[in-house]
């Protein structure tokens, strides 16, 4: 049985019927780490809120652990774990009090499921008497994850857990998710960071309420249709301007220290020559390693 099955889900808001989620379908297998990747306003939070029974869909249906998100909301509420986008713990309660509170609300105790959170909890345990409001972003995030895990959920919904968190904490967080996966917990995670996509088993790229593509990160990258070049020169701005005006480069954009450019021909030497003619120095042209971000950009065009 699939852990999450979503069929033609639709959500609109307000009098103008602004479409936030537009006919979205996907399914997530048990024990899978599934990523919903897209920018703010793509509809990620709305999808998560519908799946966690916080919002009613305006169309379509979905099941979580076989339970219908509208009819069986009580069963879903007692079996899933949810970490909302904002830091949603009590700032004036200590780490321990927060954890205890959520354990009790979910009808369990810290001891009962300690094995699940142990890995994460030991990192914040030295500060267990510190109030949550005084913790660093990374520590808050760990505590929030502990609280979402404490009742041993079958499925975990993490809404943008790494937004606003520095790269080091982000990395650690994803390592923790990897370990949880090993415990057979199904994890749905949303993120605006494209580079986190490769850490998921499967991903859905989403924009404007619509899913652009669903597959394993590897397959999405392999499905990239064009030849993609990585081009470097000493002046990025002029390089981009030059690439933009080249007839055989349909699209080009900055990508780290390189510019990525789709290219129509096999031979790149004329392009190099052209760039030098434009007065650029330090020109280097090579085939780029396609990333999820490239795929996303391609899908948006």
């Amino acid at each position: 049985m699939e852990a999450v099955v979503v069929k033609n889900l639709v959500k609109t808001y307000g009098k103008e019927q602004t479409v936030a989620v537009d006919d979205v379908s996907f399914s997530v297998g048990r024990g899978e780490l599934f990523g919903l990747i897209g920018p703010d306003g793509a509809g990620k939070t709305s999808i998560f809120r519908m799946l966690t029974t916080l919002l009613l869909p305006d169309g379509g249906s979905a099941r979580v652990d076989g339970h219908d998100i509208v009819k069986d909301f009580r069963q879903i509420r007692s079996s899933v774990g949810y970490m909302p986008g904002k830091f949603s713990l009590y700032q004036d309660l200590t780490i321990e009090e927060n954890l205890n509170f959520f354990a009790t609300v979910f009808g369990t105790t810290i001891e009962e499921n300690y094995h699940l959170i142990k890995d994460i909890y030991v990192q914040i345990e030295p500060f267990k008497n510190r109030r949550a409001g005084k913790l660093s972003g990374g520590m808050k995030q760990k505590l929030a994850l502990c609280c979402a895990l404490i009742h041993k959920p079958t499925t975990l919904f993490l809404d943008e857990p790494t937004t606003g968190v520095d790269p080091v904490s982000r990395k650690e967080f994803w390592e923790m998710l990897g370990r949880l996966k090993a415990q057979q917990i199904t994890i749905l995670v949303s993120t605006p960071y494209m580079d986190e996509a490769s850490l998921c088993d499967r991903i859905a790229l989403i924009q404007g309420g619509r899913i652009l593509s669903i597959d394993t990160p590897q397959n999405i990258i392999e499905a990239y249709p064009d030849r993609l070049l990585a081009v470097k020169a000493n002046e990025m701005y002029r390089l981009l301007k030059a690439l933009e005006s080249h007839p055989d480069v349909p699209s080009s954009y900055a990508f780290g220290e390189y510019a990525h450019a789709t290219f129509r021909h096999a031979d790149t030497r004329p392009l190099e020559a052209y760039l030098r003619e434009q007065g650029l120095t330090g020109v280097e042209v090579k085939d780029a390693e396609v990333t999820i971000e490239d795929s996303f950009i391609k899908l948006l065009h």
Partner: peptide
């Protein structure tokens, strides 16, 4: 923060 890759560029 939170902007799609095209808009970001």
């Amino acid at each position: 923060g939170g902007v799609d890759p095209v808009t970001r560029r």
